[in-house]
Amino acid sequence: MTEPRKRHPLGRMIVQRLAIGVFTLFIISVLVFLAVSLLPGDIAQQILGQSATPETVAAMRRDLGLDQPLITRYFHWIGGVLQGDFGKSLANGRPVADLLATRLPNTLFLAAYAAVIAVPLSVLLGLLSAMWRGSWFDRGVNTLSLTAISFPEFFIAYILMYWLSVQWGWFPSMADPGSNPSLMDLVQKAFLPAMTLVLVVSAHMLRMTRAAVVNVLGAPYIAMARLKGVSKWRIITRHALPNALAPIINVIALNVAWLITGVVIVEVVFVYPGLGQLMVDSVTNRDMPVVQACALIFAAVYICINILADVLAIATNPRLLHPR
C-alpha cells in the first residue's frame, strides 16, 4: 500500500458513496419533516384542544413557528436536530431529547447483543450450507430458515416467552432493565428479546449469505482452482472468501433492516423500554415530534450502516485493491 500508484480509484469511489449517503440522509430528513405538514388539521389546535380561542391558537402557532414558510421551518428544525434539540413531546411537554437519552442506549444494547450472536452464526451456517449444497444439512437449514422467515416476529417472541420463561422459568419474561443494572444483569434480562431477534435476523442473513457464496463458487476461477487440484479448504479460504466478502458485508448491512423492524416489535412484546416501543406509543398518540425523532434516528442508523458496508465492500474487493 505504501508504493505510489497512479490514480487509485478506491478513494474516489469511497468519497462518491459518502456523498450519496449524505444526500439520502438529507432527502429522508425532508420526508420526515414533511410528514407533519401532511397532518390533517392544525397542530396548535390539537395541542390546545377544541375550546381554544382563535387568538390563543394564533399565539401558539407563532410560538411553534408555524406562521413561517415551510423552508424556514425545515432549516430551523434540522438545525435544532443537528444540535440535539428535537423539540418537545406533545403528550407530556418534555424535551424529546430527554426521552431519547434513556431509550436509545437500551435499543442499541439490544441490537448489538443480537448482532454479536447472529452475524457469526449465520455467516458460518450460510457458508457451510453453500459448501455442502444439496446435502441433508443444506436442506435442513433451508427448511428451518424458510420457516423462521415465515413466522411473525411476535410469534417467535411469544413461543420463547412461553417455554423459556413461563414453563421453565429460565429467563424473565419482562425485560425492564431497571436503573443502573450490571452488565450480567442486562445480558440475563434482555436474553429473550435478543434471542428472538437472533432467530429472525439469522434466518434472513444465512439465506442471503448462502446465495452470495453459491454465486462466487460458480465463478470460472473456482472451477480453474479445482481443476488445478487445489484443496477444498484452500479454495474456500483463499479463492472464494475474499471475493465473497463484499457481498457478505452487504448482506449483513441489509439485514440491519430486519433488526430494526424486529426491535420495534420485540420491544413491545417484552415491554423493553427502548426506542421502538417509544415510537409505537407515539404513533398511537400521534405525538409527531417524537415520531419524527425516532424515525429519523432509525433511518440515520440504517443509512449510516449501509454507507459503512458499501465503503468496506469497496475497500475489501480484491479487484479494486489491485488495479491494473
Binding site: 439520502t24 432527502i27 429522508i28 420526508l31 420526515v32 410528514a35 407533519v36 401532511l38 397532518l39 390533517p40 440491519v256 433492516a257 430486519w258 430494526i260 423492524t261 420495534v264 415510537m279 409505537v280 407515539s282 404513533v283 400521534r286 409527531m288 415520531v291 419524527q292 424515525a295 432509525f298 433511518a299 440504517y302 443509512i303 449501509n306
Partner: peptide, 19 residues
C-alpha cells in the same frame, strides 16, 4: 429513496401522519 429506509419505519411515520 423509499428503499433506503426500513419499510416499517416509513409505514409507522406515514400511518401516524395519515391516521
Amino acid at each position: 429513496i423509499l428503499m433506503a429506509v426500513p419499510s416499517l419505519i416509513f409505514t409507522l411515520l406515514a400511518l401516524s401522519a395519515l391516521g
